[in-house]
Amino acid sequence: MSVVEARHVTKRYGEVRALDDVSLVFPEGNFFALLGPSGSGKTTLLRAVAGFVEPEAGEILLDGQDIAHTPVHRRNIGMVFQNYALFPHMSVFDNIAFGLSVRGVSRAEARERVHRMLDLVRLPGMEERKPRQLSGGQQQRVALARAMVTEPKVLLLDEPLGALDKRLRQEMQIELKQIQRAVGITAIFVTHDQEEALTLSDHIAIINDGRLVQVGAPHDIYENPGSVFAAGFLGDANILRGRVENGAVAVDGVGPVTPRSALPGQGSPAVVAVRPEKVRILAEPSGQACNRVAGRVIQGVFSGTSVTYIVETAAGVQRAFRQNAGERIHGAGEGVVLEWSPEHTVVVEE
């Protein structure tokens, strides 16, 4: 088990800043997700850790040693590629044994370790197959076994499940997590699927435009997004903008909205975010003390287990999510009231 750390890592491609002063610690034994929109720099960061990208500035530390300028083959990493990159001319056995054979591990020991790996990824008896004779999911497992058989210090995965269909993808998510737990390896994986990041990882780093936006445990980031971007990228969020007045945020046409946490000084602009599932949708105001906004239903999107309402309010279009417990569904054009408690009202940065 090992700690990986990026310190002030910067990488430019011409005018594009793929990584801009990124500092991050990937803790030991952690499953760490790099999440961000397309082109945000996730792959670049992962490849900088792997050694395929040489940063212009900054350090990459592996167990405290700077490896930013160490060639890939001397870093002792394991990597799983999006399209697996299995060697087409080699059998499954030779693919997995490759890392051992370049390290000079004896044939007998290699055989032993490859078999253990194949058991781990639940592919026993596939040694002599060629990669093209395997299904997508099986190739994925071989790639994983190949990356881990050398007992690398860190496992890097670039959208490892991107090439699989949805069902298989969900199965592999669970399996991947189990294997990582069992081995206890530090793993960093890139995804732009927020659900995957939430279910798989111990930690998530949200990246945008080459910059680190927020780091934390999935639950923590979800409940306490630090910025409008983080709130909107990981999950859905209603955003309300206003000015600080007497310890609350005065939103135009809505009135005061009380947040959970402290606000900046009187008169300065402020933004708050609320998750749609924290918003109650009612026909009449409840009379309880809470944040409240009136509006008109544009549409109720029914998806079986739930209804998501899209509501036009004085503070713009907002969303409310409601479990389908058998209540009447509000029709389009109906006047409604949205309510939520100050506890779920998070102050975020613009």
């Binding site: 087409p88 370049v102 890097l156």
Partner: peptide
């Protein structure tokens, strides 16, 4: 074929020549 195969080899510890 793309550069991934060689990258995979490098990540597994192979020198560029290997």
């Amino acid at each position: 074929f793309g550069p991934e195969l060689e990258e995979a080899a490098a990540s597994l510890g192979a020198t560029p020549l290997q």
